[in-house]
Design a protein around this nucleic acid. Structure first.
Lengths: 106, 106
DNA sequence: GATTAATTTCGATAATTCTAGAAATATCGT
DNA sequence: ACGATATTTCTAGAATTATCGAAATTAATC
């Protein structure tokens, strides 16, 4: 993962509302949640939430799939793994992974 | 680590210049680098760099210690570990840490 | 105590982000 | 087609962030 993409992902996660949204989706698992379900949890206006979710979709951290009237949002686990891998290998070398290329994650 | 602090850390790391600065400090190891040394690497104006470094210091990701005329900047490895731990346990449960029951609601 | 070096603070401007109401779009059931 | 639901797009004001030159600060050196 390149630094610029990592920075963009971090920037998007660096907003409390968006981080909460993403965490909620992760907790929901691979099936994710609809935008409306997220809204019920957070209580934020629809247009604001839509804007935040769009940010996450733009950087690829969330994918969306239409299911009738509902838009299902799923967290992109592999990308999140890549991001954590970037942080671990590029920004945390001395404290964590002395020489391993962060590939060994079961 | 609380969500709000995690979000603040991510926000600060979510700027390409600051992420580059932090990575540079990590690569430099526990001794870190002076502000001037960082500036030589990045070529960004002093006032701009000072501003970015201050952001990192504010959230605790970097600590500063005066050594004569030089300000030494060190990365806060434990905090970075905490941040990665937060992301791993709160935002990546299904892919990584089996800490919680991960009760997948299918 | 003046001089030089390292860094910050100040101040001003440009650009971006956040927020949310209103209007528009998409889909479904009848 | 119509009405209801789900979500986005449009729009704009407020707030925040980024940028950087100039001036100020701090500390070593002469």
């Amino acid at each position: 993962m390149e630094l610029d993409h990592a920075a963009r992902c971090l920037e998007k996660l660096g907003n409390p509302t968006r981080l909460t949204v993403f965490r909620l989706l992760v907790k929901a698992g691979h099936d994710g949640l609809s935008v409306g379900a997220i809204q019920e949890h957070l209580g934020v206006p629809a247009s604001t939430l839509s804007h935040h979710v769009a940010h996450l979709v733009n950087v690829g951290l969330v994918s969306q799939e239409r299911e009738g009237r509902v838009l299902r949002c799923r967290p992109n686990f592999p990308l999140m793994d890549e991001l954590i891998g970037f942080l671990t290998s590029e920004c945390c070398v001395l404290a964590d992974a002395p020489e391993e290329p962060a590939a060994a994650r079961a």
